[in-house]
């Protein structure tokens, strides 16, 4: 039926286009749906307590109806801060080396290795943390005459630093490589050394992108759950030093959600902590992505 087959395939094309558009819309909406769902479920606690009390109170006694998230939020910030402080200098140096100095075989060979590092499951990082990092930190602390179990902010920070390194490296190398060659050549032709060119021209040009890469790493570290849960120590108290245990938000959720549903507002409190986590990470992500899109436009 040659005559009727032509309208059919056009009709099919139109139908396919429409259903694909619907799926695309759904994909766009998932983030919004998640945020709305979490907000809706955490409303009971938001209505019965003030936001200030929830965010800034130190008291975490769910049985007495006291839900202060401060130790957990500060725990997350401390752990993430340590991770970023370790990861950023190392990653920047490595990224500059890979993008500028390394011979081609190292640069090409490093890509699959970075992908591999990014693909290792967080539980495996956690196992590594327990086996290597925790004893190392405990040993280091005892040589400073401090007592710690090793399950502390510093251990979690080290493990997280290794975990976010591939994220930061990947984006930074790409950003550095995308600086137009003319900038390099202009600087070199004026007699600048390679390092001066990098310092004054390339890094300056790539700065927004590099910051975005760091922020992406930061948000990855902030939301990372299993590895942190395994090495951070999980004591609901604001850490006073890097050798104190911490109890970051994701670990709180992972340890307690789904249990103790009989305590009033407990379920709601857990979902509120999910919402807090999601909002912080979303803000970081949106900022970083906007900067990266801008950087991409500049290159083109």
């Amino acid at each position: 039926m040659p005559n009727s087959s032509r309208p059919f395939r056009l009709w099919l094309d139109r139908m396919a286009g429409r259903s694909m558009a619907v799926l695309t819309g759904f994909a766009c909406l998932i983030v919004v749906l998640m945020a709305v769902g979490l907000y809706w479920k955490s409303r009971p606690i938001l209505e019965s307590k003030s936001l200030g009390e929830l965010l800034f109170s130190e008291a975490w006694y769910p049985l007495r109806g006291q839900f202060g998230f401060k130790p957990f939020i500060l725990g997350s910030i401390c752990v993430t801060g340590v991770a970023i402080a370790i990861a950023v200098p190392l990653c920047l140096l490595t990224a500059v080396y890979l993008a500028e100095y390394a011979p081609r075989w190292i640069r090409n060979g490093s890509k699959p290795l970075i992908d591999l590092l990014a693909g290792i499951p967080s539980v495996v990082y956690g196992v590594w943390g327990i086996l290597v990092v925790v004893p190392m930190v405990a040993h280091f602390a005892s040589s400073l005459r401090l007592t710690t179990s090793g399950y502390c902010v510093l251990s979690a920070g080290i493990v997280l630093a290794v975990m976010v390194a591939p994220v930061i490296l990947h984006v930074t190398v790409e950003i550095l490589r995308s600086v137009p060659r003319e900038f390099r050549e202009a600087s070199l032709s004026l007699g600048a050394t390679h390092w001066q060119t990098i310092k004054h021209v390339i890094l300056r040009k790539a700065l927004p992108g590099v910051i975005a890469a760091i922020v992406l790493g930061l948000s990855r570290a902030f939301g990372e759950t299993m590895a942190v849960l395994m090495v951070a120590g999980n004591v609901p108290k604001t850490p006073g030093s890097v050798f104190d245990p911490a109890y970051p938000l994701p670990a709180l959720i992972a340890n307690n959600y789904g249990e103790m549903m009989s305590i009033p507002l407990y379920d709601s409190a857990m979902l509120l902590s999910c919402l807090i986590l999601m909002i912080i990470v979303l803000l970081f992500n949106i900022l970083a992505r906007l900067v990266l899109i801008q950087a991409e436009k500049q290159v083109q």
């Binding site: 983030v31 998640m34 990372e224 979303l282």
Partner: peptide, 16 residues
Amino acid sequence: SLDVLWGVPSIVFGAF
């Protein structure tokens, strides 16, 4: 929005 969704921590996916 897919990039942003990528950044959402997996524990949040679990809770959702």
